[in-house]
């Protein structure tokens, strides 16, 4: 580098004076400003302005009609959420948490299992992969409609035929608790039914991600492990799984995001009672028949935002730490 600087004395002198070297000149500089500035501007305008706006509105009382009607109410909306609407709020928080834990323990593990099984050159593996992947092309809203009419129909649904014992079963309307936490909160039976429908789609998604990951695992590693006498489980746990770390991070991110943003499937099922999640409470207060309480709706949204932010911070620090480690090694 030193010799190169000597060849271009003017630039080197500027660097030596401790000032930043102009990396771009003339038209290049304008191109640079445009390429950085336009995306930044759009990002700030479309992401941060609404976010900060929502946080501001969560401290106000506003019917969403005229800007001049916005009145500052301090922490009132939050206070009401935690004291007056607390049963709805904590149930929604529980549902979001249950969804998150369930997605990790259920469809994510199952998707991983499917990927591992189908990665071997078994007969018809392409067919199986396609079958398990098909639900992923559907939006969760469509999944909701399909399960409502085909599987969970009270009189004629497939689930009713298989498990109902000849009696109609109200799969999506039964709000009694499957597992209860005290008298007030729990995991309702209809929420459990919705979890199964979500899993049906999510497992295929995870399967594809792991299939892609497994393709990149060097076969010689597995061969070496088997020569060393490792059995199948040991090979997976100690050799294959660690090499899948980048995929694991992606899967963790996708799963957490799916759990926090869950909305569409519950909304299209008319939000059966006790299946509310935070995004539903937000929407109910902002839009629709019961809308027009922008303050409280924004407060719900802000709480959801803080939960997401906590996760994003964890992810960013964790991710960058791991890539730095990777660069060092």
């Amino acid at each position: 580098m030193a010799t190169a600087e000597a060849d271009v004395p003017t630039a080197a002198l500027k660097v030596e004076r401790g000032k930043k070297a102009p990396q771009f000149k003339g038209r290049d500089r304008w191109v640079f400003y445009a390429m950085v500035g336009i995306p930044t501007g759009l990002h700030v305008l479309l992401v941060w302005v609404p976010t900060v706006g929502s946080i501001f509105l969560s401290f106000t009382d506003w019917k969403g009609i005229r800007f001049s009607d916005i009145t500052w109410v301090g922490l009132r909306n939050y206070n009401q959420i935690f004291t007056v609407f607390e049963k709805d709020f904590f149930q929604a928080l529980i549902n979001n948490t249950v969804l998150l834990v369930f997605l990790f323990l259920g469809p994510t593990l199952f998707g991983m299992f499917l990927a591992y099984s189908l990665d071997k050159s078994i007969k018809g593996t392409r067919l199986y992969q396609s079958v398990f992947y098909t639900p992923v092309v559907l939006s969760l809203a469509v999944v909701g409609f399909m399960w409502q009419s085909v599987i969970y129909s009270t009189e004629n649904g497939l689930a009713t035929q298989l498990f109902g014992g000849g009696e109609p079963v109200d799969w999506l309307g039964n709000q009694s608790f499957l597992i209860s936490f005290g008298d007030t909160y729990g995991i309702s039976k209809n929420f459990a039914a919705i979890l199964i429908a979500i899993a049906w789609r999510h497992a295929g998604y995870i399967m594809v991600l792991y299939l892609a990951g497994l393709k990149s695992v060097d076969n010689s590693l597995k061969e070496a492990a088997s020569i060393d006498g490792a059995n199948e489980w040991q090979t997976f746990r100690l050799v294959t799984f660690p090499t899948l770390k980048p995929i694991n991070v992606v899967v963790a991110v996708i799963t957490v995001i799916e759990a926090l943003r869950a909305f569409d499937i519950i909304f299209v099922l008319n939000t059966p009672r006790k299946t509310e999640v935070l995004s539903i409470l937000t929407t109910n207060n902002l839009l629709g028949e019961g809308g027009g309480n922008v303050g409280r709706g924004s407060a719900y949204a802000t709480i959801l935002f803080l939960l997401c932010l906590g996760f994003v911070i964890w992810y960013v620090t964790n991710h960058y730490k791991s890539t730095e480690e990777g660069a060092e090694s």
Partner: peptide
């Protein structure tokens, strides 16, 4: 108020019918 009807009365009546 539609807000009361759809965010409070509706869900609570459903709760009553369930329990």
């Amino acid at each position: 108020s539609p807000e009361f009807a759809s965010n409070v009365a509706g869900p609570r009546i459903a709760d009553f019918l369930a329990n």
